[in-house]
């Protein structure tokens, strides 16, 4: 499959290179011939709705699932045949916090460090350092089972980076946690990126991907449909002018009337009491508001919308981003 990509990074060897990766579970195609490359020190976002194939892709890249077809190279090492070959170079933060409930936070970190061959003193020092970094010092000697969801997530991320991996896989790191913890985690991801860690981030939060990532791949129904840098992705919608106009009461069926009177405007109705108008030219607010008031509508607010990645996502995938967010937050779901 050819994926449109306007900017390639040929200057350095890819940290992750994937070619024709495919995986099916019975009749269900989880990932269909995915091809992409992630450069060293890049923060690469993998964005898609629930069940799009994000976790399956990460599982194949990290050796937790066997691809049906395709080739995987991590830091130049061919992992297609031997998934263990590059495991010393990667850190993985799964979509669920899967540390040991019977161990304390400190013990969990020390144990995870030992799995990577760290000796006793260095792993204890590193564990203390990470507990401090994540504001978990006070909970260091409490059992993981008693942690809150946000604390569990933070400790799981700490466990993923305990051995200072040059490549980090983050699967939905901020899903289902409180705002403060999510913000702290985003800050940490940004810091890791700044320090040169290559990060492969899956998320369904479009704003998160937009804020953090250098490049983003959209994956829908197992297919990587588009890859580009965030500025390049936003460029087409940046040239569009968008306004949201809110009314005092529901205003259904307005679209046709507006486009009839103003042929250069595109109109959509995202919510009951509001409409959204778009145009390639700057929108003249006065005539539009007067027209709406002549129709007997009370205009409460008219504001210009900043072009966002969400618009691009909707345009490329045809999916409703808000619905995608809601779906993901249903308990018990996993992609």
């Amino acid at each position: 499959m050819t994926v449109p990509e306007t900017e390639t990074r040929e200057e350095s060897r890819p940290a992750i290179a994937v070619e024709g990766l495919a995986k099916s579970f019975g009749d269900v195609t989880a990932v269909a011939s995915a091809t992409f490359a992630v450069s060293e020190s890049e923060l690469f976002g993998f964005l898609g709705p629930n069940g799009a194939g994000k976790t399956t892709t990460i599982n194949m890249l990290t050796g937790l699932a066997r691809p049906d077809a395709g080739r995987i190279r991590i830091a130049g090492i061919d992992c297609s045949r031997n998934p263990k070959a590059a495991q010393h170079l990667v850190g993985v933060v799964p979509d669920e916090s899967n540390l040991y409930p019977e161990l304390t936070g400190f013990e969990n970190l020390c144990f995870c460090a030992s799995l990577h061959g760290m000796r006793k003193e260095p792993r204890r020092t590193r564990a203390r350092e990470l507990l401090a970094m994540f504001d978990l010092e006070e909970a260091a000697n409490r059992k993981f089972a008693g942690y809150s969801k946000g604390m569990k997530r933070k400790l799981t991320i700490a466990a993923g980076i305990i051995h200072c991996p040059p490549i980090l896989f983050l699967d939905e790191p901020t899903t289902g946690i409180d705002v403060a913890s999510a913000r702290q985690i985003r800050q940490l991801i940004a810091d890791l990126h700044r320090n040169g860690t290559t990060i492969f981030l899956t998320t369904h939060y479009i704003e998160e991907a937009e804020r953090l990532c250098d490049r983003i791949a959209f994956i829908v129904s197992g297919r990587v449909v588009h890859i580009d840098t965030v500025p390049n992705l936003i460029q087409p919608v940046r040239e569009r002018h968008t306004m949201q106009i809110a009314f005092s009461k529901p205003a259904a069926g307005l679209g046709e009337k507006i486009t009839g009177a103003f042929p250069d405007l595109d109109c959509s109705e995202p919510a009951g009491n509001a409409i959204r108008v778009e145009s390639a030219e700057p929108i003249r607010v006065g005539p539009l508001v007067r027209f709406l008031e002549d129709l007997g509508l009370e205009v409460m607010e008219a504001r210009r919308l900043r072009p966002s990645l969400e618009d691009v996502f909707i345009r490329i995938t045809g999916l409703d981003a808000a619905l995608m967010r809601k779906e993901k937050e249903k308990p018990g779901d996993a992609s």
């Binding site: 937790l64 540390l99 799995l115 990577h116």
Partner: peptide, 15 residues
């Protein structure tokens, strides 16, 4: 079942 076994599978040691 609790997925903590995945941590072991991701460790750089042979199965």
């Amino acid at each position: 079942k609790g997925r903590s076994f995945e941590r072991l599978l991701l460790a750089p040691i042979s199965l």
